[in-house]
Nucleic acid binder design. Structure first.
Lengths: 246, 246
DNA sequence: TCATAATTGTTCGTTAAACGAACAGATTAA
DNA sequence: TTAATCTGTTCGTTTAACGAACAATTATGA
């Protein structure tokens, strides 16, 4: 059903943009003809998903109600929120929960501090899995075959000087995460950003999400993260996992 | 573009359901033929938005990334979260932020307590505006013409014995809210649920959202809400409004 | 201010994509 | 095993999406 796919592509493009987009701009980004984009936008407008403003088109809050519930979104973030806030309170740092979708992680719940540096992160945000602690914590619990499948599909650009980009090194790092039970990633995604993650394991023993604490590299050293934050994070992740059987 | 609309309808149906849905079920709920539903689901599956499970189809987390950013969703919940958590801490009650979409309110940010009664509320959730404090706080700042337009479009079923359902009484209640600067709704949505809301007004003086505290009616009286919670909520709403110029 | 460009909105014959009915395979229930 | 239900497939028909060309509107800039 091509027009459904195209419409969703238009929505996706709008979703990724910070500002309103004009039709030719959307047309360019999606490689769809102007007429197609026009028809999509018209339909989406009729349905209340987008709005036409002087500066272009933008999504309306109605899109939120689509994302409201994927299977489990109802339950997990709801249950997790108090744990995230607990970690936030105890450490003073922002704490998030994420799951894996293809080669990316998606944030499904957060508790953030006021002094957050990367304001653009939000529920539903995506980041590459390979260079984030959340991603590595999640990847670490795939079978070797699945892991290689994941890793071989992607091409890895270095995002900072620290970013690991070779498959062999990545495999090594991820195996280490599996052993340790946590993932510490030091400024591989962004200079100045240090992040520690643990898997959340449910009663059946499967990894259902990963929980992390992200800090400013200048404020907290790797050693202090492992000393002060890891125990708190581990405890919260464990408690959360025990509460859910999803 | 009918097939886009139909696809979104299918997504919407899946989104509202608690469990997986089979094709005939979706077909019934959407009044679309099985063949159409099949094609929609096939396309959505290809795109990674839904997944076919033994028990039926369900949405995948990818839908979250659609909802990730409507214009302002990036900014406002982000800014608001600390304020919501502050209110939550000071009052011990769950605190939410919502905006108006048609005749419904949509939650865009929350800080909840562990002992939440109504677990099904989440970011992106919708409730009727007319019988919620959030809705009334938002409706109170429409122009009289817009308000009548809104009110006249809907038919009001009583959800509890307390629910106001006549347009004249609603208008009166909403005008009172405009005067008071807060909305207190006592068990009109659900027996046992009491809710207090204030508008969030930005630097330009327009209402950009409403903030509420919801409590169990058995725990906290109306008088105590106004005495203890209203000042906290008002203060937080005011501070939040001052921070944003959206 | 006017002219130019850029964006949005319309129309219409063509084409392809969506349609649905009918059938076949697979899965579940009794 | 037999019904019953759900999923997947095929194919001729029809409708809805297409795109090119044109018109109207709105910005941009000299």
């Amino acid at each position: 059903m091509t027009s459904l796919a195209r419409g969703l592509e238009v929505m996706g493009t709008l979703s990724q943009s910070d500002s309103e987009l004009k039709m030719p701009e959307i047309s360019k980004q999606t490689n769809l003809s102007r007429a197609v984009v026009r028809r999509c936008l018209y339909t989406l407008q009729e349905l209340g998903y987008v709005e036409s403003k002087p500066l272009g088109f933008r999504l309306l809050p109605k899109v939120l109600s689509l994302g409201q519930s994927y299977y489990g979104a109802k339950a997990l973030p709801q249950i997790a929120q108090p744990f995230l806030e607990q970690v936030h309170l105890e450490t003073g740092e922002s704490c998030s929960l994420a799951i894996l979708d293809g080669s990316e992680v998606i944030y499904i719940a957060r508790s953030t501090s006021r002094r957050i540096m990367n304001v653009s992160l939000n529920i539903g945000s995506r980041l590459p899995a390979f260079c984030t602690s959340l991603g590595r914590a999640l990847l670490a619990h795939l079978s070797p075959k699945e892991l290689q499948n994941h890793l071989s599909k992607e091409k890895y650009r270095p995002l900072t000087a620290n970013t690991i980009t070779t498959i062999s090194e990545l495999t090594k790092a991820i195996n280490q995460v599996a052993k340790d039970g946590y993932a510490l990633v030091d400024q591989e995604l962004e200079v100045g950003l240090r992040s520690l993650s643990v898997p959340v394991i449910n009663q059946q023993g499967s990894v259902i999400a990963a929980m992390n604490v992200g800090v400013s590299a200048s404020r907290i050293s790797n050693a202090r993260m492992l000393q002060n934050i890891l125990p708190v994070l581990r405890n919260a992740g464990k408690l959360l996992g025990e509460q859910t059987s999803l």
